[in-house]
């Protein structure tokens, strides 16, 4: 029983980070048609910026998180104006943009390698403070902090998308861009806010990932990219709520698959494989995603 509770807790930690990263990816995918393979590098960028201000400059971690989010949002915005917008103006479509994003991923990841090297890095936080919750679950302070921030962010984003005019038009645009652009939505503004939100959340996700992993290197984002994509597709491309459910669900599935009671559970090294397998199976059953809509021919 306590193993199950522990796995559930771990699953929520992993799942909330996947969910945070997946929201940004799905909005960019749905609104701008960019299947962004560089999204993982946005996570790594956030983590390393936070590392720089937290460890190199000695800022407290809270301030570092905010700084990293702003910096990653700026990166997202800068690349929109410097790269994606000119490409779209030249008529580049989904596959072309996807290949560009692979090039961008290579550039960003190795710039990070060039600046910070391959050595595993850690934040300046107390990783030894562990809490025993009711005698069944043990979580470190950093894990508890990370999951609390993640869920607070998820709640905030959910409210923004549900209640604000901006959020509503973002969802409308993501669901049906042709309809939204004739109904008088300011596309340029939506695009800018999509990147601010998507990249900012990626930056946050990267820092949280670094916190829960303890140590991280520039490959961290790419390692998590496929589970993030799996969450996006499970949730239905363009659906922010769908990717939230998909992300948390995948996090739980990945952790619970190792549960001993399930015929011994799978070896923990195969957790990512569980995510891929779920993705492939889900696409077999519902090619449009679990929450996505059927496509017209």
């Amino acid at each position: 029983m306590s193993e199950l509770a522990q796995l559930l807790a771990n699953g929520l930690v992993t799942g909330s980070i996947i969910a945070i990263a997946a929201i940004g990816l799905t909005l960019v995918y749905g609104i701008l048609g960019i299947v962004n393979f560089a999204h993982g590098e946005y996570l790594a960028f956030g983590a390393f910026i936070a590392f720089a201000v937290n460890v190199t400059l000695g800022w407290p971690i809270a301030g570092s998180i905010v700084f990293a989010m702003v910096a990653t949002a700026m990166l997202g915005l800068g690349l929109e104006y410097g790269l994606w917008r000119p490409l779209r103006r030249r008529g580049a479509k989904v596959v072309a943009l996807l290949l560009v994003s692979i090039g961008l991923a290579l550039v960003l990841r190795h710039v990070i390698f060039l600046v910070w090297g391959a050595t595993p890095r850690r934040f300046d936080v107390d990783v030894f403070q562990v809490y025993d919750l009711g005698g069944v679950i043990r979580l470190s302070l950093t894990q508890i902090t990370a999951v609390s921030i993640a869920f607070a962010a998820i709640l905030l984003v959910g409210l923004t998308l549900a209640r604000t005019k901006l959020g509503k038009s973002m969802r409308a645009y993501s669901d049906n861009s042709a309809l939204a652009s004739v109904s008088g939505i300011d596309v340029d503004r939506i695009t800018a806010y999509t990147w601010v939100l998507g990249a900012g959340l990626a930056g946050l996700g990267g820092v949280l990932l670094g916190l829960v992993q303890g140590s991280f290197n520039p490959n961290m984002g790419f390692t998590l990219l496929l589970p993030i994509f799996a969450a996006v597709i499970l949730g239905g491309v363009g659906s922010a709520y769908g990717s939230l459910v998909g992300g948390v669900g995948l996090g739980l599935a990945m952790e619970l698959s190792t549960w001993n009671a399930l015929a011994g559970g799978v070896d923990p090294v195969y957790k990512p494989v569980v995510a891929f397998a779920i993705l492939i199976l889900a696409l077999l059953v519902r090619p449009q995603g679990l929450f996505g809509k059927a496509r017209y021919v």
């Binding site: 790269l83 000119p86 490409l87 030249r90 580049a92 072309a96 290949l99 560009v100 692979i102 090039g103 961008l104 991923a105 290579l106 550039v107 190795h110 710039v111 060039l114």
Partner: peptide, 12 residues
């Protein structure tokens, strides 16, 4: 990095 830039440049 150069390889990534080549891919971006080609596509553009």
């Amino acid at each position: 990095i150069v390889v990534g830039l080549i891919l971006i440049g080609l596509m553009a």
